[in-house]
Amino acid sequence: MKRDETTCKKMWKGSRSAMACLFAMAILANAPMPAAAQQFSADLLARKDDTATTMGTLRVSGGKARIDATALPDGFFLLDTAKPAAYFVRPAARIYMKAMQSSPLTQLFIPVDPDDPCRQWLAMAQLSAPVDLATWHCQRDGEDVIAERNTDVYRITAPSGLSFVGWIDRARGFPVRIKTADGTVIVADHIRDESQPAQTFEIPAGLRKFDPQALIRRIQQSDVWVAPPASQ
């Protein structure tokens, strides 16, 4: 930018070229720069009544997230809302698998478009199980302030107790609070805005994909399989 400004000043004084150049430089100097993808980490805490429980840790970079759940210490979840995809990775066992219904956290704490979060929430829910669109509803329900940050409130109505309310931090494009159907409140606590290594959100090299359906088919073909009665 400085070099371009010097070039402008070297032009003939008062010439149209110099005036046009300086005018263009002024526009560029005030033009907004593209926002960088949000990167941060946080702790996940659940509160119900007077009890607080540590759920795990969260890391986010752009449209990707990683959740290390306390209840599943032998692995971690990798989420990618752009694909969309949700995997549970077990490095020690050298395998990874689709997350499916391993944890409701993979459907709740995901990067979203603050102007249309319903689309990402629905896509991640469909990864776990088929969604009946006739009974799944998502709508904006006002605004609120969480930890001195403005949030948009969305209410999701779904069958089988999967309804929840989400508070989305618009600047981060991420829900910082979720209230589930049973009254449990899960929050992204102690949020730390910091860069995240790209490999944090990648499946480690050398791991094989575990297919539970393939395992079931192998068992069905073995001598230990006993087919259920036709009535079942």
Results as ranks from 00 to 15, higher is better:
88 F>L: 09
167 W>S: 02
11 M>N: 08
175 P>F: 01
87 Y>K: 09
128 S>M: 01
28 L>Q: 15
119 R>A: 13
170 R>F: 02
186 I>C: 07
221 Q>W: 03
128 S>A: 14
134 A>E: 10
199 Q>D: 15
153 V>W: 07
176 V>C: 04
134 A>K: 11
12 W>S: 14
132 D>G: 09
132 D>T: 09
190 H>M: 10
230 A>N: 08
204 P>F: 02
95 I>F: 05
64 K>A: 07
12 W>F: 09
94 R>A: 08
99 A>G: 03
199 Q>T: 09
162 L>C: 05
106 T>I: 05
6 T>M: 12
227 A>F: 09
57 T>K: 12
171 A>C: 02
8 C>A: 14
108 L>P: 07
184 T>E: 07
177 R>Q: 15
7 T>G: 10
26 A>I: 00
181 A>I: 00
109 F>W: 08
113 D>H: 08
93 A>C: 06
180 T>G: 09
23 F>Y: 07
122 L>M: 12
149 R>E: 11
37 A>N: 15
21 C>N: 01
87 Y>A: 03
123 A>E: 14
127 L>W: 10
70 T>C: 00
81 T>W: 10
146 I>E: 06
77 F>T: 06
76 F>N: 08
39 Q>V: 04
147 A>N: 14
9 K>L: 14
69 A>V: 07
128 S>P: 00
140 R>G: 14
154 Y>A: 01
139 Q>N: 10
152 D>K: 05
66 R>F: 09
19 M>L: 03
130 P>E: 11
133 L>T: 15
61 S>D: 13
152 D>T: 12
193 D>R: 12
164 F>C: 05
93 A>K: 12
56 G>W: 08
25 M>T: 03
183 G>C: 03
31 A>H: 13
222 S>F: 13
143 E>D: 15
185 V>K: 09
219 I>N: 06
1 M>V: 11
143 E>C: 02
137 H>Q: 11
173 G>F: 05
162 L>V: 05
29 A>R: 15
144 D>N: 14
86 A>L: 01
211 D>A: 12
76 F>I: 10
5 E>N: 05
162 L>W: 00
101 Q>F: 01
207 L>D: 00
222 S>E: 10
221 Q>G: 14
25 M>N: 10
38 Q>F: 00
125 A>K: 10
178 I>S: 04
